[in-house]
């Protein structure tokens, strides 16, 4: 059980005129190797929640356990816990600051007090994981990289800490379709090949539908849905009432059903609807003949 969130409450500016309760009694457990999509309207509490997952914010009540250790426990080794949960912020490339890509990725491991050989090994490994070529790129300035490459370098900096859970807040925001493909492919590989536990915050329902095995939906600081993508995305009306999109595949299924077509429940992937439409339309051809 790497990550347990229990009755988590968080209040911003407590006692002030702008006091807001950002999290209400949020509880869930993320198991080893899960790929969890976290969705919700802006202001729903997603980013606040994410910052609790490695102890950047402290709960007003409730607790977060990482591998059984309470993040609020003052006697716990925080450095070690923060290594276990790697957090990739929105627009992570804004935090690149070193002279070269290599130095930037090495920053975290160095601060852990690892020896030079181990740091070097981790930098090379992290760059390999994000598909940045060590030979040609490690000595470049981060400002010479493309947008997608910069974001991957920032992710490499987190991976070099060898986290067992990787939390990504809107990892594709602001990238072009090609950059988005790169990042999504990279996250998928980390999950399938290295078995990393992934928590991905996203506004793109289509991305979440394609990748996540489990979807958490936040609204007004509460966890309002927790289930497989099939379970969550078939509740289209509720999602829309929260100001969220529904994947286009789900919209298509809904509208075809309304026209009297028998579309099975819980279809949300493009491959699946394609096969169903092929069956319907091939049959149509026979009728025509």
């Amino acid at each position: 059980m790497p990550l347990v969130v229990e009755n988590l409450n968080h209040i911003y500016m407590k006692g002030g005129p702008y006091e807001t309760q950002a999290l209400h009694d949020v509880s869930f457990t993320i198991r080893d190797g899960e790929f969890v999509g976290l969705i919700g309207h802006t202001g729903s509490g997603k980013s606040t929640l994410v910052q609790h997952l490695n102890g950047l914010l402290q709960p007003d009540s409730g607790r977060v356990l990482v591998d059984g250790t309470d993040l609020a426990d003052k006697t716990a080794d925080r450095k070690q816990i923060r290594c276990k949960v790697g957090l990739v912020f929105q627009y992570a490339e804004n935090q690149l600051f070193e002279e070269t890509v290599e130095k930037d990725i090495a920053f975290g491991p160095k601060n852990l007090g690892l020896d030079a050989a181990e740091v070097d090994r981790r930098v090379r490994e992290a760059m390999r994981q994000v598909a940045l070529d060590y030979e040609t790129i490690s000595q470049k300035s981060v400002f010479e990289l493309s947008g997608g490459q910069m974001r991957r370098a920032a992710i490499a900096g987190v991976l070099a800490m060898k986290p067992s859970v990787l939390v990504l807040d809107e990892p594709c925001a602001g990238l072009d379709p090609h950059g988005r493909e790169e990042i999504l492919g990279l996250i998928k590989r980390l999950h399938t090949e290295s078995g990393a536990t992934i928590v991905m915050v996203s506004h793109s329902m289509d991305d979440v539908a394609q990748l996540a095995e489990r979807v958490l939906v936040m609204e007004k600081g509460r966890l309002v849905m927790d289930g497989t993508p099939e379970e969550v995305f078939t509740r289209g009306e509720e999602l829309r009432s929260m100001g969220l999109d529904v994947p286009q595949v789900v919209q298509l299924c809904e509208q075809l059903r309304a026209r009297g077509y028998e579309i099975p429940e819980r279809i949300y992937r493009m491959e699946d609807i394609r096969e169903i439409l092929l069956k319907i339309l091939k049959k149509g051809e026979h009728h025509a003949q």
Binding site: P177, L252, M270, R274, L277
Partner: peptide, 22 residues
């Protein structure tokens, strides 16, 4: 050219490839 097409355009394209006259 490194771009997407809208999801439904992509679906129509795939269906055409499978021999549907959409």
């Amino acid at each position: 050219l490194g771009l997407d097409v809208p999801p439904m355009t992509g679906l129509a394209h795939d269906l055409r490839h499978a021999g549907i006259d959409i």
